[in-house]
C-alpha cells in the first residue's frame, strides 16, 4: 500500500468551469455551484482518490487558480511546482480552446524541466447546440501535449469522476515507472 501526494494545478481561461469542477471533485459529484463567482486568487482543495484494483491511493492537492488575465500574474507565485496539470476549456468557446497552448507555455517554467502528466478537459458538454470545438480536434491537440482528453458537464455532473481517476492514474503510473527505474540502478 502506498499513498502518493500530488500538487494538481487547475488552469484555463476565466469562466470555463474550473471552480465548478473542483467543487464537484471535492464533494464527490454532489455539489454544482449555480451562481458564478469569479476566482480572483487561489483556492486549495484536497481530494483522495483510490486506484482501482490496488490498495494504493493518490491525495490530490488541487490548486484552483484565477483564469482572468488581470489576476494571473499575481497568482503564478502560488502555482508552485506542479505534479499534475488539469487544463480546462469551454466546449462552447473556440477562443478558450485556442488559449490552451498559451496556458501550457505559461506553466512550463514552473515544471523545472520535468515531465508533468495531466489531462485536458472540455467542459459544458451539456450545451451541445452551442458547441464550437469538435472532440476529434481537442483530442488530437491533447495527445500532442501528452495529455489525456475528457469531456465533462459540471452542471449535469457528467464524467467528472473520469477526470479525477485519470489524474490519479497518471501520477500512480509515473510513480511505478520511477520505482522500477530505482530498482534497476547500479551502485554509486
Amino acid at each position: 500500500m502506498v499513498k502518493l501526494r500530488a500538487r494538481c494545478l487547475l488552469l484555463g481561461d476565466a469562466a470555463v468551469g474550473k471552480s465548478a469542477l473542483s467543487h464537484i471533485f471535492y464533494s464527490d459529484g454532489t455539489l454544482f455551484q449555480k451562481n458564478y463567482s469569479m476566482t480572483t486568487g487561489v483556492e486549495l482543495l484536497m481530494k483522495c482518490v483510490n486506484i482501482p484494483e490496488t490498495t494504493d491511493s493518490v491525495e490530490l492537492y488541487i490548486i484552483d487558480t484565477a483564469g482572468k488575465e488581470t489576476f494571473v500574474e499575481a497568482c503564478k507565485k502560488m502555482w508552485g511546482e506542479p505534479s499534475l496539470l488539469c487544463l480546462v476549456f469551454d466546449l462552447t468557446s473556440e477562443q478558450s480552446f485556442a488559449n490552451c497552448s498559451r496556458w501550457m507555455e505559461r506553466v512550463q517554467p514552473h515544471c523545472r524541466g520535468l515531465h508533468v502528466p495531466g489531462v485536458l478537459v472540455g467542459n459544458k458538454s451539456d450545451l451541445s447546440a452551442r458547441r464550437e470545438v469538435q472532440a476529434s480536434v481537442a483530442s488530437e491537440w491533447a495527445q500532442s501535449q501528452g495529455l489525456d482528453y475528457h469531456e465533462t458537464s459540471a452542471k449535469e455532473l457528467e464524467n467528472c469522476d473520469a477526470v479525477l481517476l485519470s489524474l490519479a492514474r497518471a501520477f500512480h503510473s509515473l510513480y511505478q515507472e520511477r520505482r522500477e527505474a530505482v530498482q534497476n540502478l547500479s551502485p554509486g
Partner: peptide
C-alpha cells in the same frame, strides 16, 4: 544500498 526509502510526491 539495494534497499531504499522512496518519497511519494511533492517537496
Amino acid at each position: 544500498t539495494k534497499t531504499y526509502w522512496m518519497t511519494t510526491g511533492m517537496f
